[in-house]
Computed example of a mutant assay.
Amino acid sequence: MELIERLKDEQKAAMKAKDKPRLGTIRLVMAAIKQQEVDGQKTLNEDEILAVLTKMVKQRRDSVAQYQSAGRDDLADVETAEIAVLEEFMPQPLSEEEITALVKEAVASSGAASMQDMGKVMAILKPQVQGRADMGKISQLVKANLG
């Protein structure tokens, strides 16, 4: 089933179940997708929708860290609940071993020899790990392999 259809079905189910927090989060996702479609004047494909979800999860993780450092655990809990809903629509995360193997394979296949070739390696990796791993971690592993 297409991701957008799954989101619409889950939105309907949340409405019927009167699950306001879940419904609110799904509506936020749908609004973000619609905003991207209007801005780009095109319909988003699966990868682009996944990028929107990834960005939303990252924003919420940043918010959780800020709320916790400010002692606002009530707000951090709301953000954490939203992350849980968003992650239901994301693909299964990659394990450390899988990430390491993908990085080594990308470095070898791109013929990268120095840090100047990092862009080539990241271009190979991004479509493979989009929404399944933290790009910051990936970047660090690539730097370690090239440095």
Rank of each mutant, 00 (worst) to 15 (best):
E2N: 15
I4Q: 08
R6T: 13
R6V: 09
M15V: 10
K18Y: 05
R22D: 02
R22Q: 07
T25A: 15
L28T: 00
M30R: 11
A31S: 14
I33V: 08
Q35D: 15
V38N: 04
G40L: 01
K42F: 05
L44N: 01
L44G: 00
N45C: 04
E46A: 01
E48G: 03
L50A: 05
T54C: 04
Q59N: 14
R60T: 05
R60C: 07
R60Q: 14
R61Q: 15
S63W: 01
A65H: 11
Q66N: 05
Q68H: 07
S69E: 15
R72W: 12
R72F: 05
D74E: 15
D74R: 08
L75T: 00
V78Y: 05
E82F: 13
I83H: 07
V85Y: 11
V85N: 12
E87W: 11
E87N: 10
F89R: 07
P91Y: 08
P93D: 13
S95K: 12
A106N: 05
G111D: 02
G111L: 08
Q116L: 13
K120F: 11
M122L: 12
M122S: 02
A123E: 14
A123L: 09
P127Y: 04
Q128F: 11
V129A: 10
Q130D: 09
A133L: 08
G136M: 08
K143I: 10
N145S: 11
N145W: 01
L146W: 01
L146M: 02
